[in-house]
Design a protein around this nucleic acid. Structure first.
Length: 197
DNA sequence: AACCTACACAACCGCGACTGG
DNA sequence: TCCAGTCGCGGTTGTGTAGGT
């Protein structure tokens, strides 16, 4: 038996937020404050899941968000914190004012994970792609992010070949994570209590 | 210029933790 | 103490677009 859905999904909108929705959400939170995410969409007149509203607010609409590129200092901080905290993105984000866990997670996955892996392997931090297998010669595209990117690319390639833009669930079949709920290491211990820094 | 590939990031999903009755 | 409802987190997916051939 599956668990009940987090919220009633029928009739709810998904996908990218429109400017109008952003305005409604921002205005509502300005007037009523954060919290009660479940009832918020209904009260605000949004056809969105509460979770979606929360995510949108936290990752995009909050006034104290720092937009723009991650600085070198921030990057260094992320690397250091990740070394001690692991994938505890919310904790890491707590050390970086104006940055969200999602932003940091994305940045890590697209920029830093590869560098960290290379560093862990003992040698380089800045990789010279021309020295990688294949001589760094690629047919189009940008520099590869490594094995994960390669796997994703393969899936994308396959889908493109099929005329589909949508990606297959490559990760579900290729990655070893969560064969069952008991081994989801990342979930082994989540604390909601805010860290006392 | 068109095509192909990979990047970047917003958003979704599932589940464990927390909370109040 | 138990349980249902809710919240928050981390992993994953979807897609617009940049950049190389």
């Amino acid at each position: 038996m599956g668990r009940a859905p987090c919220c009633e999904k029928v009739g709810l909108k998904k996908g990218r937020w429109t400017k109008e929705e952003d305005e409604i959400l921002a205005r509502y939170i300005k007037e009523h404050g954060e919290g009660s995410w479940r009832s918020l969409p209904k009260n605000a007149g949004l056809l969105r899941c509460g979770k979606s509203c929360r995510l949108r607010w936290i990752n995009y609409l909050r006034a104290d968000l720092k937009r723009g590129n991650i600085t070198e200092e921030e990057e260094e901080m992320i690397i250091k914190l990740h070394a001690t905290l692991g994938n505890r993105w919310s904790l890491i984000a707590g050390h970086l004012p104006g940055r969200t866990d999602n932003e940091i997670k994305n940045y890590w996955n697209s920029h830093l994970s590869r560098r960290a892996a290379d560093f862990r392997d003992g040698v380089v931090v800045n990789v010279d792609l021309s020295k990688l297998p294949g001589g760094g010669k690629r047919r189009g595209g940008r520099a590869s992010r490594g094995i994960v990117a390669a796997a994703k690319s393969a899936a994308t390639k396959e889908n493109n070949a099929k005329g589909k833009r949508a990606r297959t669930t490559w990760a579900r079949t290729m990655s070893p994570h969560k064969p069952d709920s008991s081994n989801s290491s990342s979930r082994a211990r989540r604390r909601r209590t805010t860290p006392s820094f």
